[in-house]
Simulated assay, not measured.
Amino acid sequence: MRSIFVSAGHSNTDPGAVAFGRREADIAVEFRNMVAFYLQRAGVPHELDGNGTTNLPLREAVVRAKRHPLGVEFHCNAAAAATATGVETLSAPKDMALGAEICKAVAQALGLRNRGAKPENAGQHHRLAFVQAGGIIVELFFITNAADLAAYDARKWVAARDVAAVLTQAAKA
């Protein structure tokens, strides 16, 4: 079984996007820990970018990600338009199918739009360090959309369980 690196986006010193009194980095750590709970239960070997509320900086996460054949990093999307919604992943071509499975799992669990698996240059950046290290960036939902945030709060454990199930299957492949 292949090992998985599970990372929370941003870090203890970089909060990421902030909306409705919530910090992206805090949500990412929470979701990372929930996914790790389910991976542990399934017996999947994995490493995290910190324990508890610790969230290591990207430069350290990238080093750790390179040691694993599979890696995911959780983020929240943000937009000026409060109506922007949904889940998407950013990855290298080799990880597009797994990214699509993760998108499907999160979208179904949270009842959100599936924006799909996209190449790393589909967003505001052309090259993403975590993707270059072999990982997939998961934009769970739009933190700037009150309905997306409410859906996450209501069904985050279901989403974490379903993402862990997708990762477990990938680790076994």
Score class of each variant (00 low, 15 high):
77 N>A: 01
18 V>S: 12
112 L>K: 07
43 G>D: 13
130 F>K: 03
145 N>D: 09
164 A>K: 07
41 R>Q: 15
72 V>I: 08
53 T>D: 05
51 N>H: 14
94 K>W: 11
106 V>C: 00
30 E>K: 15
95 D>L: 14
106 V>L: 02
150 A>G: 10
101 E>I: 01
130 F>N: 04
156 K>V: 07
158 V>I: 11
164 A>E: 11
80 A>T: 13
66 K>Y: 06
150 A>M: 10
79 A>C: 06
113 R>A: 05
1 M>E: 07
108 Q>G: 10
117 A>F: 08
152 Y>I: 04
7 S>F: 08
73 E>M: 05
142 F>T: 09
125 H>I: 09
93 P>F: 06
61 A>Q: 13
3 S>H: 04
79 A>M: 06
165 A>G: 09
37 F>A: 12
107 A>Y: 09
1 M>W: 06
24 E>Q: 05
145 N>H: 15
23 R>M: 14
79 A>T: 06
93 P>C: 07
4 I>T: 08
152 Y>H: 04
125 H>S: 15
59 R>G: 01
158 V>T: 13
31 F>Y: 05
53 T>A: 13
167 L>E: 01
14 D>K: 14
161 R>A: 11
85 T>E: 00
76 C>I: 05
22 R>Q: 15
113 R>Y: 05
125 H>M: 12
104 K>F: 00
22 R>I: 05
4 I>N: 08
30 E>T: 14
87 V>K: 02
61 A>L: 09
6 V>S: 04
105 A>L: 02
52 G>S: 11
9 G>L: 01
65 A>E: 14
68 H>A: 12
99 G>W: 00
69 P>F: 08
88 E>Q: 08
82 A>Q: 09
31 F>C: 01
65 A>K: 03
87 V>R: 00
68 H>K: 14
10 H>N: 11
34 M>D: 03
141 F>R: 02
133 A>C: 07
51 N>G: 14
48 L>K: 10
55 N>F: 06
153 D>N: 15
120 E>G: 05
